[in-house]
C-alpha cells in the first residue's frame, strides 16, 4: 500500500485549502433524514470536474467543514449534488439550508472508482444505505458509454422502503433494461413486494461470469466486509473488488492525520481502495 502525503508544491498548485462560496440551487429530501443539495457552480467553479467516488469539503460558514461524496453525474456541467445523512450539528445546519443560501466548497479530493477497468466486463455495484450516493456517479458514467460494458447489476439494501435513496432512478434504471436492479430492505410492511433480507443475499439470485466481473461496494463497513467475502466466495478476483472507506476528515489533503487508518490516509490514498489494500483494516476495533 502506498502511503503518500501531499508536498507543499502539490498544495500550492491547486490551492486545496481555499474554500469557494457556492449558492445552493435545490434541496431534495430523499427520506426522513437524508437530503440532496444541488449546488450551482457555474460562476464560482466553472472549471470544476470530478471523478466518481471523489468527495468535497462543504463549509458551513461560522461552523466548520464536513466531507461529503459527490453524488451527481460527472458528465453534467453547471451543478453538482451531495447527498447527506443528517447525523450531527454540521449536517443538521446543511439540512436547514435553502435555495440561494451560500456554502463553501473545496475539492474534489481523494481516489476514484476505477470505472475504466470494467470496460468489456460485467459490473456489480453493491451498496447499502447512504452508500449508494458515492456510487451513483459510477452508474451515470457507465450509462454514458453503456455499450462498452457487459451486464451492469445494481444491488442495493436499505432499512425499509421509505429509507431507500434515489427511488425514481432505481426504478428507471430497472425499467430501461440497461441495468439489472435488485433492491432489498431489512423489513417491510404488507405493501412491500420486493426482497427482504441482507444485500449479500441478493447475490444468490444472479448468475455471474465471476472472472469477468468488477465489483464496486459502498455502505456501512460491516456490510462491505460481508459483501466482499461473498463476492470472493463467488470467485470474483479480489483485485476486481473495490470499496470506499469513511473516516473523519479535516484537511482532506494528507496533512493533519485526522483520517488516518493504520498506514493509510483515507483522504488521500482513499476513499476508494482495491480490496487487498484495505481488507486487513476493515472493522478493526483499534482503528
Amino acid at each position: 500500500m502506498t502511503l503518500r502525503s501531499a508536498s507543499p508544491a502539490d498544495v500550492d498548485a491547486v490551492d486545496p485549502m481555499i474554500t469557494n462560496p457556492v449558492p445552493i440551487r435545490r434541496v431534495v429530501w430523499e427520506n426522513d433524514d437524508t437530503f440532496t443539495l444541488t449546488l450551482d457552480i457555474r460562476d464560482a467553479l466553472p472549471a470544476f470536474s470530478f471523478l466518481p467516488g471523489q468527495f468535497n469539503m462543504l463549509y458551513v460558514y461560522g461552523m466548520g467543514e464536513v466531507a461529503i461524496s459527490i453524488s451527481s453525474d460527472p458528465g453534467k456541467k453547471g451543478t453538482i449534488d451531495h447527498t447527506i445523512h443528517r447525523v450531527g450539528s454540521l449536517t443538521t445546519a446543511l439540512a436547514h439550508m435553502k435555495r440561494g443560501d451560500m456554502i463553501g466548497v473545496r475539492g474534489p479530493f481523494g481516489s476514484s472508482w476505477p470505472v475504466n477497468v470494467a470496460r468489456g466486463k460485467d459490473v456489480i455495484i453493491a451498496s447499502g444505505g447512504i452508500g449508494l450516493a458515492p456510487l451513483r456517479p459510477v452508474v451515470y458514467s457507465i450509462l454514458r458509454a453503456r455499450k462498452d460494458y457487459g451486464r451492469v447489476i445494481v444491488l442495493y439494501g436499505g432499512r425499509s422502503a421509505l429509507d431507500l435513496l434515489f427511488r425514481v432512478e432505481l426504478e428507471e434504471w430497472g425499467n430501461n433494461h440497461e441495468v439489472e436492479t435488485l433492491v432489498t430492505v431489512d423489513r417491510g410492511d404488507s405493501s412491500w413486494k420486493g426482497h427482504i433480507g441482507v444485500v449479500t443475499g441478493l447475490l444468490s439470485y444472479i448468475k455471474l461470469d465471476a472472472r469477468n466481473t468488477v465489483a464496486y461496494v459502498c455502505g456501512p463497513e460491516i456490510m462491505m466486509r460481508f459483501t466482499a467475502d461473498e463476492l470472493e466466495a463467488r470467485d470474483i478476483p479480489v483485485e476486481s473488488i473495490y470499496l470506499s472507506m469513511e473516516r473523519n476528515m479535516k484537511c482532506a489533503i494528507g496533512f493533519c492525520g485526522h483520517c488516518q487508518m493504520g498506514p493509510t490516509f483515507i483522504c488521500k490514498d482513499g476513499p476508494v481502495y482495491q480490496l487487498p489494500q484495505i481488507r486487513p483494516l476493515l472493522d478493526k476495533k483499534e482503528l
Binding site: 466531507a67 461529503i68 461524496s69 445523512h85 447525523v87 447499502g128 431489512d186
Partner: peptide
C-alpha cells in the same frame, strides 16, 4: 444477525464524515 445489527442505522453522513 446482520438485520439485527441495523447497520443502516449506524451514523454515517454521506460517504465521509
Amino acid at each position: 444477525r446482520m438485520q439485527l445489527i441495523d447497520m443502516y442505522g449506524l451514523t454515517t453522513t454521506g460517504g465521509h464524515k
